[in-house]
Design a protein around this nucleic acid. Structure first.
Lengths: 137, 137
DNA sequence: AAAAGTACTTGCAAAATGCAAGTGATTTCG
DNA sequence: CGAAATCACTTGCATTTTGCAAGTACTTTT
């Protein structure tokens, strides 16, 4: 299972969609960025209920795309830690704008509304703090 | 063909992906926002070569989601004009961040690089001008 | 009146997704 | 120490979505 990603054109949007243009990939990145998830089992627990084979497929795509990397878990050799690369961390602004847009037009969780309110007040600060969270480690 | 959109959760990102989480939908919005396309035939011409049935399906989803609307073409009754609603126009920042991210990490068209350079210089200005373009009409 | 344009729809093969069960390597528990 | 549980997947198969080619119905051009 190591097919490489085919790019349909040199349009940056098309290229981005060739990587994460589906219903699941950005949810994995969401879990890494906002929910502190790092292991296969944690991704499976999310409320949207991704199937195990789809998760495995998306993790391999994200790794091939250089958005996440694997390393061994400090506590156990049975576990694997997934973490965002610089390329993955740089998706923060994309996710932030999706959240802001979606919250404006849809019915979302109360904590998503609260988060959107913070964005409305000082988006730069929220983004900066997220970046700091992931670049300090 | 009027199935409504099912939302998997109340997460704003998940909800957004339930609407445009595929390889084609955001390309249609791209064409509306950046390439001045407004008709079915124009969308078909894009270099990624969307299939006619997929295009019809995505246009109906975008209309159901309130992102685009149809109106009659002033020149012809055979043509239909598609245009972005306020909800669609508000996707500008999402697309902008995708472009900025994708250009940073991938090999893209020269004019996409040029556009990204403008973003780097003054993103607010580029976004503001895009909004003005679509709200003045 | 015929041909071309426009916005689709239809039929069918191929690919992707979803679900349930299974695998093999750790790790925990008694 | 051995059995059961945990962990990260893989496999098989049914369902759904996509992709391609062709067709349709209406309008416009010639």
């Amino acid at each position: 299972m190591k097919k490489k990603i085919e790019f349909r054109s040199q349009c940056p949007i098309s290229t981005a969609l060739d990587i994460f243009g589906d219903k699941w990939t950005l949810l994995v990145i969401r879990d890494l960025l906002f929910n502190g998830k790092r292991t296969y089992g944690e991704f499976l627990e999310s409320e949207e209920k991704i199937a195990t084979n789809i998760l495995a497929d998306r993790l391999s795509i994200l790794e091939m795309a250089g958005i996440i990397s694997k390393k061994k878990h400090p506590d156990s050799n049975a576990k694997i830690l997934y973490n965002l690369t610089a390329k993955g961390i740089d998706l923060i602004p994309v996710l932030i704008e999706i959240i802001a847009w979606s919250e404006k037009y849809h019915d979302v969780h109360p904590y998503a509304k609260k988060f959107a309110k913070q964005l409305h007040k000082d988006k730069e600060k929220v983004v900066r703090q997220l970046f700091e969270n992931f670049t300090k480690k």
